[in-house]
Amino acid sequence: MTIFHWLLIAALVFCFVSCLRWFLKLIKQPKDYADPKGSVADGVTFSCTKAMLPTHKESAYLHLPTYIAGIIYHIGTFTSIILLLLQLIFTNFMLPYTGNCEMGDGTSCFIFSSNWTFVVYLRLFFAVALAVSSLCGVAILIKRFTNKELKALSNIDDYLSNIFVTLFQMFSAIVMVAPYSTWTQPALFIMGTILFIYMPLGKLRHVIYFLSARYQLGAFYGKRGVWSMKNKKH
């Protein structure tokens, strides 16, 4: 465990505690005395599935390139976070394994590490995928400061959040292609630390609020009988 490991762990704890605090505030729903016309559960199911598809959402079908870039960008972010956590837990994550793979011998390993060729391809796959997703982030960033309306709507946090997340994905990609370099993983850990400390300050909090928003949306239209999974008209 290096100092970078500890910094990252501290940032993760800080971020987790912040998220938990907001999450707890979102659990208690205001009481609604109106009689339902439809089902809340059905509406929420619809809201989290079909309603997000380009067939149903104008923000998707009228803006397909941005929508697709956004989806890829978000997948890239979550992939990077998972890879980061695995690297934090397993010292030899995605490295060729030569010794004894038992926990407690000072090293830990990952199940793929006995098959080196496979691991190389896997690393290459992640590197390319994350390069693509971070380019999507760059594209969205460029759109943000070139599109007149979007620029007017944006604040410093909108730019910073994008830059931090995009850099985080890029560093994640670099670690995948240069596993033996001494600086790549520490750089990724520092980037991760910055990201997780910054996250609770600005818009990145939407990782929690997005879920709550989809719930509220589905609950509203579900209860009022507007959205339901059974309705063939959708």
């Binding site: 907001w22 505030k25 979102l26 659990i27 208690k28 729903q29 205001p30 104008e58 923000s59 009228l62 803006h63 941005t66 929508y67 956004g70 599109n147 309306e149 979007l150 709507l153 944006s154 604040n155 909108d158 818009k203 909090r205 939407h206 609020y209 997005f210 709550s212 928003a213 509220q216």
Partner: peptide, 21 residues
């Protein structure tokens, strides 16, 4: 500020795709 309002006030990400609707 209940769960509903907190959610609505925190979730816009300024994607700017709503204008066309």
């Amino acid at each position: 500020l209940n769960a509903k309002l907190i959610t609505a006030l925190n979730s816009c990400v300024h994607c700017g795709l709503c204008g066309t609707s």
